[in-house]
């Protein structure tokens, strides 16, 4: 079997008496989209926070790219190649889309402790950033302040930034949230090609997108993974049907 890119084992996180993550074991293999679904309050966000390093787990391990990352900070994990997008788009609003992506490119290139060379004249930054913006289809809007971009465009911008980091895995937190039907469709097509770049852990409520994209699905309920399997297996799984899917399957 191929070594997973991301391997989470027996992860536990308590908030007081509440066990928000209850022995979660999950892996992400090269080339796949692994969807994580579950009702509100199931602990998806808590899990994501632990993977990207904003929350520390109480016990259990997180291995990424062959390394235990469980005690690293957010920036260190990002540098190892964990690219993420947020439920609510996270961008630098005063900067143009281009300069947002350039921030990611400069982080990837190495040092941010360069004080004198103007970035807007730095071809190596601009060209790489523009290439990423082209891949997500934002070339025409590159110079507009990110605050003025539409919701969908900000999503694309975040993905361009994750691409610029040369991520070894993508952690996408509800990328379809707030997108119209057209936007969801085109984003779905894009994510389908993105998996060739790096595997995707996809947290998503939009079941059409999940069923269209996922190679495997894990279902999280009350902090526990109650099932992991292919789309068909999950659709047929009786516990999942009662716990979550309802009429949807």
């Amino acid at each position: 079997m191929v070594e997973p890119v991301l391997q989470i084992s027996n992860l536990v996180k308590n908030f007081g008496a509440l066990r928000a993550t209850d022995g979660v074991t999950l892996d992400l293999r090269p080339g796949e989209i692994h969807a994580l679904i579950g009702p509100n309050g199931a602990g998806k966000s808590t899990l994501i926070h632990q993977i990207c390093g904003t929350l520390r787990q109480d016990s259990g391990t997180i291995r990424f790219a062959g390394q235990d990352i469980g005690s690293l900070g957010v920036a260190d994990r990002a540098r190892l190649g964990l690219g993420r997008t947020f439920q609510v788009s996270s961008i630098a609003p005063d900067f143009s889309g281009l300069r947002n992506v350039m921030l990611a490119v400069q982080a990837k290139q190495g040092s941010s402790f360069r004080f004198f060379k103007p970035v807007m004249r730095d071809r190596s930054l601009i060209d790489t950033a523009m290439a990423m913006l082209e891949r997500v289809g934002l070339t025409a809007r590159a110079r507009i302040p990110a605050a003025e971009l539409s919701h969908g465009e900000r999503r694309q911008l975040e993905i361009a930034m994750a691409l610029a980091l040369g991520s070894k895995a993508f952690l996408l937190d509800e990328p379809m949230a707030g997108m119209g039907p057209e936007g969801s469709k085109s984003l779905t097509r894009f994510l389908d090609t993105l998996r060739q770049e790096a595997p995707i852990l996809l947290v998503e409520h939009d079941m059409d997108a999940v069923f269209a994209l996922a190679d495997r699905i894990s279902v999280l309920v009350y902090g526990r993974i109650i099932a992991t399997g292919t789309v068909e297996e999950i659709r047929r799984d009786p516990t999942v049907r009662t716990a979550y899917l309802g009429d949807h399957a």
């Binding site: 990207c52 904003t54 900070g73 957010v74 920036a75 260190d76 990002a78 540098r79 993420r84 947020f86 996270s90 961008i91 630098a92 609003p93 005063d94 900067f95 300069r99 947002n100 350039m102 921030l103 990611a104 400069q106 982080a107 990837k108 040092s111 941010s112 402790f113 360069r114 004080f115 004198f116 060379k117 103007p118 970035v119 807007m120 730095d122 930054l125 930034m161 980091l165």
Partner: peptide, 28 residues
Amino acid sequence: LIRASRFGTALQAARQNEVRVATVGIQP
């Protein structure tokens, strides 16, 4: 010069969105 530089970019980005800066791998 600083404002236009890589350092300045990171510094201003940290003002606008600290989480974003950390997520690209720069420690604010």
